[in-house]
Structures are given as C-alpha cells and as structure tokens.
Design a binder for these strands. Structure first.
Lengths: 256, 256
DNA sequence: CGAAGGCTTGATAGACCTCAAACACAGTGG
DNA sequence: CCACTGTGTTTGAGGTCTATCAAGCCTTCG
C-alpha cells in the first residue's frame, strides 16, 4: 500500500515551499501509507483523539474545524491535495480540533512511527515538515487578522485569493479558475459569518465583476481587483516562488 | 553575555510542555545570548525583516501583531517570559508580522546559527522547539474560534483564563492574581473590538463578580464562573500538567 | 411527484462601532 | 504650588455590520 503515486501531491506541496534533493524525495516516496477514500462530511480525526498516524490529502477538500457551544462551527483551515492537516499530531498527542472532509476525498494515512523515523534520520526533511507546520501557523495568523479586523466582504475576497494561489502553487488551478465544490455555508463557517450574509456578499463580488462561481467552479474575473478588495498579500504563504496570476493563461487570452 | 540566569524562564516554559533531561537543559543554558532591555511599545522585529537571531522574552510582556489598512492593529498573541515569539524565523526567513513590547521588557537574542546547531545535533531539543511552535499554532486556532464565533464578552473571559493558566504554568502568578499592566486598548486589539466596547464588557465582568482589574493587577474572583463565561477548555495549551486553579492559594483562604 | 439541500430575498433585531465629551490621574514646567 | 499636558477610563447617542427569522425558489434525486 505504499505509493509513489500516492505521495506525489505531498511532494508537489513540499517543493512549493522547500527545496528537496532527489534522495530526500525518494525517502518521502518510500513512506508506507494506507490509502482511504472518504465521502464528504466525514471526520478523519476528532477533538480529543490521540492519533497514531497522520494523514496526507491526496484528492478532494478537507478542513480543520471546531464546534462551539450553540453548535456553530468555525473552520480553521482548508487542506488541499498535498497538505498534511494533522502533521502536528506527531508532537501533540491530543487533538484539539477536528479534521473532516468537505467533499469526497482520498487521504493517505502514515503511521507516526514512520514519520518519526524519517525526521529523526533526515534533519532536512524534519526541517521541511517543521516549516510546513510553521506556514500553517502563518495562515492561521492571517485568518485571525481577517476575523478580527476585516469586513466580511474583504474576508471573502481574501479567502478566494488564498485558495487560488495555493491551488496554483501545487498545479491544481486552470489559470484563474479553481474547483470549489462546497456550499456557501462552508464559506461562512470559515469566515465567521452566516450563509445569508455570505450570499449577499457573493452577489456584490459578482456585481463588481471580481468573480463568478457556479457549479462548483470559481473563476476570478479581475485578479488585481480581487487582490485589492481582499487586502491580499501572499507573503504569509511563504512560497518559494509566487505563481504568476495577474496574466490569464495563454489559451484564454490571445494576445492579438 | 551567555547566561544561565537568562535562560531560566525559557527552561521553565519548555518544562511546562516537554520533559527535558538535565543534559538537554545544560545545552540550552549554554546558548549564547545577548540581553537587551527595551522600553514599552518598541518593536523587536518588523514585518518584512529577515532576522538572523531569535528572541526569548525574559521579563515583561511582548506581543505579535499586524496592522491592516486603516491603521487598525490585530494582536496575534501575547508572549510572556520564557516564550520565543519568533522561533519560526529559524525556518521562515521573512517575517510576516511584527513583534513588539507592550511593557518595558527584557529579551535575550540568540543567533540562528546557534539554534540551528543545537537542533541539528539534538533531535529531542528540536522536537521540544517544534512542539513549542505547534502549541503557538494551537493558540492561534483557539483565538480564531473566539474571533469568528464568540461574543466579545466570552472572548475577554477566555483571554483572562488563558493568561492566568499560562502565567501560572511558568510560576508567574500569585494564586488567581496576575500582573497585567496594559491598557484596555491592548485587550481590544487582541480581541478585535474597540476600547469602548472592552470597557463596557469589563464593567459587566466586574459586576458579575468574575474579576477585578486595577493598577495593572488582575484578580480572578470566581474561577469556575470565569471558565464558564469564557467557554474555556485548556486542552489547547497542551501543558504537561494543568495548574490547580479552582482552589485559591492557601494563604488567602483559611480552610476553617 | 415529493423531499431535501442549497440559493435567494425581505424584515427585524442585536452586537459592536464611531464620534464626542467628560473625567481621573500622573508627570511636567513655570 | 498650581496650571498644563497626556494617557487612559468612562459614558452617551446614533449608526453600521451582521445575525436571526422566515419564506420562496430552484435543482437534484429517489
């Protein structure tokens, strides 16, 4: 059940933020993993669990979330293919939040023992993984700024920018179009607003000519405008190189 | 300029979340550090900097923060003695937020080279440091939940609980009294609300008999009540053992 | 066809903000 | 010694953002 194919999204992700040697990539490819297909809205790990393995998202969309008294949910981050949303469980035994799927997804489960063996024997891979968790933390901080200090309109624009950049960085966008097959409620849970309000703001963003979003496909119609509306600065993603997004893909915008 | 005395707060902090051997503690004590006294409201590192050292808070109160368009500040976390608020800079070269003092403070500055040497040669210390940054991330998540889904009243109660537990964990509280010599504006910047609103909620918390706060001394008058009001569950702090707080210190509450 | 989930719209309500001013207190300087 | 200043707290009134409640609509699916 180990898999070069399975680990590819992980490699793409790590490469986007850290330079790996071929030998290091081979070590990562050699990690034994159990592949698991999941329906949407299923939990991978729950608050209070003490996991003995950690997961890599191979396909689909996964999120970390918490539920507070009153039943309201706060989504803490989105995990796209290549992400390891519970890598932290290698060092923090008890989960302080849930991880669940938002769409049908495929995940790889890697026993902690193997992760530990790898990071103990290869300090540079340990550094890459550590760095990965530090970038997670940077994204949390950015969301905190949004939740605390930005209007819902800005927050939504910012989130779209973030998703486009992150998906592009791992080769999962088509120009300025991304797959986002979730309900507006999910966006609300991520940004701390209600569905009703999300809906009204999406209408505004569409009216302003910034985005379209239907049938699970989100397309940015005005990238500079969206970046402005979202007060978006991708520094916090700590990518090795920023994907070029201000230019639409060549097959959509003939130069002449 | 190296200092056993200087590193003590750091050791207390690390011990609160990770078990260190004496040899490991000695290695940490041996880290060379430059001690620096700072006035309040001074920046230690700024957004965009590429620091070559990282800092340990030895005394005082330090915070991470960001400023958004419009000049509003979002405090991202408080760093108390023993904390290393920019440990991340060892792996993320560019700062994506500021770190500054909230009160007159003393910090120790340790060159990255020495930190790198230590974590490369001693995997368990690397694990302790990594774990430390993971706990930072857990605190960010908890704040996100507050900012996104809790009322300001709850958020303030929660913050007080957090500060009391963290300060107690490193021996810096007197029972349920902590030193908190900051303005109400600082609390507002941390919780994403205005001073005016903070003021009104503090009055409510006082009226409810939960806390008192004057002359920079905050005292919890009803710990279970405050925990309830703040929807506080300390799991996310990942302490090795939870300080006993539900009981007032013996010298204040004679049993008979 | 009915049921369920998701999107959309309207009306009302609540949390929190903004603006403005008064007040308390410590530090400064004439 | 007493204005004077500055910082921080407190209070009031009105306004904005977002929530809540409620209903209608559309699509998908069994």
């Amino acid at each position: 059940m180990s898999g070069s194919a399975a680990a590819l999204p992980l490699l793409r992700k790590l490469r986007s933020t850290f330079e790996l040697t071929e030998a290091e990539e081979r070590s990562i490819l050699a990690l034994p993993a159990q592949i698991r297909d999941m329906k949407r809205d299923q939990d991978i790990v729950r608050e209070g669990d003490r996991p003995s393995q950690c997961c890599v998202v191979l396909a689909g969309l996964v999120c970390r979330y918490r539920v507070v008294v009153g039943g309201r949910r706060q989504i803490l981050s989105f995990a796209i293919p290549g992400d390891m949303p519970d890598l932290q469980s290698v060092h923090l035994t008890t989960m302080d939040h849930n991880i669940g799927t938002l769409t049908a997804s495929t995940v790889a489960l890697i026993p902690h023992a193997h992760v530990n063996a790898l990071i103990t024997s290869q300090p540079r891979i340990a550094a890459a993984f550590w760095r990965d968790t530090l970038i997670d933390a940077a994204v949390f901080r950015e969301w905190m700024v949004g939740l605390g200090r930005r209007l819902a309109h800005t927050r939504i624009a910012h989130l779209v920018c973030e998703l486009v950049v992150r998906l592009t960085a791992v080769g999962l966008s088509e120009g300025l179009r991304i797959s986002l097959p979730v309900s507006q409620e999910v966006i609300g849970d991520a940004l701390g607003v209600t569905v009703v309000h999300v809906n009204r703001i999406l209408q505004a963003l569409r009216k302003e000519g910034l985005i379209t979003w239907s049938d699970g496909i989100l397309e940015v119609k005005d990238w500079p405008g969206l970046v402005r509306a979202g007060d978006f600065d991708p520094t916090y993603l700590h990518l090795r190189e920023m994907p070029k997004l201000d230019v639409a893909p060549f097959w959509r915008t003939p130069v002449n």
